[in-house]
Design a protein around this nucleic acid. Sequence first.
DNA 1: GTGAAAGCGCTAACAC
DNA 2: GTGTTAGCGCTTTCAC
Lengths: 342, 342
Amino acid sequence: MTSIKKVTLRDLANHLKINTSSVSRALNPKTRGMLTPELVAQVEKIADELGYVQNTMAYALKTGRSMNIGVIIPDLMNPIYPPILKGIINVLSQASYTPLIAYSENNIATALDEIKKMKMRQVDGFILACAFRQDEAVEYCLANHLPTVTVGRSLDAHKLDQIVIDNEAGIKLAIRHLISLGHKNIAFASGPLDISDGNQRYEAFKKEILANGLTLDESLIVLGDEFTEISGINLGERLIKQDKPFSAIVAGNDLVALGCICALESAGLACPDDVSVIGFNNMPYLSLFKTPLTTIAIPRMEMGKNAAEVILNRLINPEESLKNITVTPELIERGSTSIAKT
Amino acid sequence: MTSIKKVTLRDLANHLKINTSSVSRALNPKTRGMLTPELVAQVEKIADELGYVQNTMAYALKTGRSMNIGVIIPDLMNPIYPPILKGIINVLSQASYTPLIAYSENNIATALDEIKKMKMRQVDGFILACAFRQDEAVEYCLANHLPTVTVGRSLDAHKLDQIVIDNEAGIKLAIRHLISLGHKNIAFASGPLDISDGNQRYEAFKKEILANGLTLDESLIVLGDEFTEISGINLGERLIKQDKPFSAIVAGNDLVALGCICALESAGLACPDDVSVIGFNNMPYLSLFKTPLTTIAIPRMEMGKNAAEVILNRLINPEESLKNITVTPELIERGSTSIAKT
DNA sequence: GTGAAAGCGCTAACAC
DNA sequence: GTGTTAGCGCTTTCAC
């Protein structure tokens, strides 16, 4: 009850004048059957009375399973991660696993640090949402045989379980949407190309422009190095300055899109009247924005759920073949895209 | 290096033909001084070569300190928590502590569950952002002598360390701002009154209205039971329906304010032209909204930082007197408030 | 069906 | 300055 000292298995055993092993068996659903129901009931009663809670540290030390999964996301502030985390946590906690959450500041060295800290804490596996296309933090997990799944961003090489976004399908949706509105001169404001999602969207853009019979004007492709508003502002400004005609921008993600809109406005251009803008991710509250952003939604909670399921399964079946789960994006039409003027 | 088996202190000791205790001492900065620098160097070298990482579980079991702090927030999706978390994590990780993060779904029973799970994991202390004014989950921590600090929401009784918002100062700022714009009929759309922040803002509203010589019209105070947009919509509708004149709404928080604006628009009223609305919290991206919300900002990262510092200090000084840190809010003027019409 | 005993990896008296 | 030893709380083989 209101005991100040911790109650251990031994305490329960002493109270009942039985052995700790019997107490352990009584409290574990899997071994409970070995004991008489009466003993089990007695143990449960006294455990409840004394307020016994298992010491996971001791369990972990003994069994080698910490029941912890390390989860690393790039950035706590980016609103796309909470739903992914929620998906992860829901599945993990159902299976009595606990997430150890850290953020990498979008930095491989920090990620590696966190991974090592988590290794100290004997995590049973990793869910990494922070991977770069080449990433020594991820490679470290691989080299140390730490069960690992990436979610969203992935390595170039398919060396581990991964949950990926069908970025090509997403960009196709975006471009077809713009084309259906009559746009011909479509610009692309990229995210970082050293991140798979950034790169895949960039490659998909070029491919889809050509696939739809438009001409690919390389000068309408501007390369950013971050998935941030700031980067979007820079890219927007660059696009505007070069004075080449364009009536629409496909952005690497929503934050970049928001930055582009900001740059357009600063230059006296209206979105969508002068330039349509389309984002990627469908971050929260977009519908309430001054310019409600048309975007490509991804099923974030599902991605988290998938990631957790995959890592849990990997722990049980270490030898199973590599998983590669692809989630499908969806177009969300809002007010930042409209019919092309000319 | 790429060892598949875990490297233990014993492995290092065997390699160097010394005792594990020497290895332990060499690796611990505090006991390093007991050994010859040469030995220390040797141990560090071999530890590095074999890729030794300490087993925190064993450390925890031995020392009784898990170096984990349990952190419970009400809701992962609410954008005000990430900055608080960030503040917490930054301080904790500096001190080699790791947060165990869970969310309570704004539900005392769930919070209690999570607390018990964390107790199993031997957390050294708790940071709770999920407290209700009466809260048996918090009481459980108290009763079990688990070092605990609340951040933001607090118990009615000051029984434990707490980081609180000066809600009265915040509401004062809001009301004075509206009065300076000529508003006289000011409504209040409350948050839940069983949460300290909700209740304190409600009480402060009544007090400040009177303190400024306005008449307190109880019918202009509508009570919600959640800090959500949905609740805000309901409250806005109720305010509009009763057909009493009001030119401004003070909302329990930003989400409620956003809901009010939504209700106003549905009723054909414009914000701020017909009704000014002011929120609380200054959630992210508000400046980009269609109606950029005027609000009361709170220093969220600082709150998290404070909470972590307080709990860390409490671990070192269990007998110190109860802490009560108050953070000060600030008015952020945006476009949702303007001069009263009449 | 239950007990005895070993040991997970580590730290911290206590020796010398 | 370094070794020896016990033991944190738990699970699990091996007895009986």
